[in-house]
């Protein structure tokens, strides 16, 4: 697992001219389909933990930010291609991703993943059938474990697969599954939590160190004054704080 990057960002008071020119508006890319981290609210706007966090970070870093949504599948290629400047989409810090993009300081503790199954079900963790969103760390985890993996394009469909019996359980971030388990009468969290992936951080282009440092500094500042913890308690109850 990747050690958390605790950036000791020494960031100057005045940003360089080039930075100001390139980042007069910072575009934040998110998926918009992963509550409570990010989702589209009734009004059609991006909402959730990361919306509130991102707005606060931009305020602290004195940046003008704009929210855009992008398919999960192509969220990194579009970042490196320059279609937006940062990914803030519940993305765990992993070695593979870190080779391609840079991450800011993490803004959540490593979030455990957990299994959600029909009430009373006891899935066989070594040989059962498990649903996961394609391209997530959970999908890789199940594939490596030897159990049968069923992949779906959206997190929504993974839960639907458990409901209709296609899969014994779904493996996903606990913070995503918890509200579903609380609201649904027929589903509950089962088994032990699984620790995969590091904390969640913002993904930034490797060539964009100045922006990374700015966001890291803002995240560290929020950690220090407790405002990040307040946000975590509000949106991700049950998750570890800093």
């Amino acid at each position: 697992m990747k050690q958390i990057l605790l950036a000791t960002a020494a960031f100057g008071l005045s940003a360089s001219m080039a930075f100001a020119a390139a980042h007069s508006v910072v575009r934040l890319g998110t998926e918009g389909a992963y509550p409570p981290y990010n989702f589209i609210n009734d009004a059609g706007d991006v909402d959730g933990f990361e919306r509130e966090l991102g707005d606060e970070l931009c305020k602290r870093a004195e940046l003008t930010c704009e929210w855009v949504t992008n398919e999960w599948d192509s969220i990194i290629p579009n970042l490196v291609s320059g279609n937006y400047d940062a990914i803030i989409a519940g993305m765990s810090i992993t070695d593979e991703r870190d080779e391609v993009i840079d991450f800011t300081s993490n803004y959540t503790q490593p979030d455990p993943s957990s299994y959600l199954a029909l009430d009373g079900a006891e899935p066989d963790y070594a040989a059962g059938v498990f649903a996961a969103q394609a391209g997530t760390i959970q999908a890789s985890h199940i594939a490596a474990s030897g159990a049968t993996l069923v992949e779906f394009a959206t997190p929504d469909e993974t839960v639907a697969a458990v409901r209709n019996g296609e899969a014994d359980a779904v493996l996903a971030d606990k913070a995503y599954l918890l509200p579903i388990a609380e609201e649904a009468s027929d589903l509950s969290i089962v088994g032990d939590d699984v620790l995969i992936g590091g904390g969640i951080g913002m993904g930034i282009r490797e060539s964009d160190t100045e922006l990374k440092d700015k966001f890291s500094a803002a995240i560290d500042a929020m950690k220090a004054d407790g405002s990040l913890n307040a946000l975590i308690e509000k949106w991700l109850p049950g998750s570890a704080t800093f």
Partner: peptide, 16 residues
């Protein structure tokens, strides 16, 4: 630059 595709700010489409 590695994986990144970096052009000058004036060349961005649309402008940043």
């Amino acid at each position: 630059q590695g994986n990144d595709f970096v052009v000058c700010a004036e060349a961005k489409l649309p402008l940043g």
